[in-house]
Amino acid sequence: MSNQILERPKSLTQKQFHYCPGCHHGIIHRLIAETIDEFDLREKTIIVQPVGCAVYIYEYFDTDVSEAAHGRAPAVATAIKRVSKGKFVLTYQGDGDLAAIGTAEIVHAAARGENICVFFVNNAIYGMTGGQMAPTTLPGMKTATTPLGRDVKKQGYPIKVSEMLAPFEGVSYIERVMVSSPKHIIKAKNAVRKAFKYQLQEKGFSLVEFLSACPTGWGMPPVDAAKWVEENMTKQFPLGVYKEVGLDD
């Protein structure tokens, strides 16, 4: 009989994800849950969830979870981390949540060097409300509120969150990854692990930005959407490590 199994991680509940077919949220959830399991942190973890498609995280993770108002997760996580000794605190936020309405909260949590992990899902669109322009929508990209494509003269330029936050002294680790193929998923998993280690070693703020597909919002089949991430999003948002202060051995 088989002796090695790859299966749904223990830190996820049995609840089925509500995400659209081919949405990358589910992959990112699994990577985080697998890492919680690997570090044996389920009983210490407190997740702060966003408003947006991932608003049901509290049903999916078998850990303590707090909802936060739209964009405010870094403030909520700041307080939880500071008042709770020895707990592992992470936020999970989308681009509308983190890069639009919650810009003040994320910038100041990073600047203060809050010892939390932020998992930032950038799919260049507002999924939950029906595909409107996000702060990360690519120039020329059509959305429900940029029907002719994002015109940077009128709607401005996309916000590059990793590049923006990396210079803060309080930031210990930032990497931009994608989960469009097995190779990149393995890299993304390593980034998640690293972010966890930065918090566990009390090095301060860490963030992993995931370029993520929204097949429904983009109006593409899932396989094409994953390719679109690789071919288009990475041009605007280059992958790589933007900050790494170094871990202890």
Binding site: S2, L6, L12, G26, I27, P182, I185
Partner: peptide, 20 residues
């Protein structure tokens, strides 16, 4: 297993396979 966004896939291996 890795790309499945719905954790619908379980892989049973007979022996250790080094992929990661």
């Amino acid at each position: 297993y890795m790309v499945c966004p719905d954790t619908a896939i379980t892989v049973f291996r007979d022996e250790k396979v080094e992929v990661e």
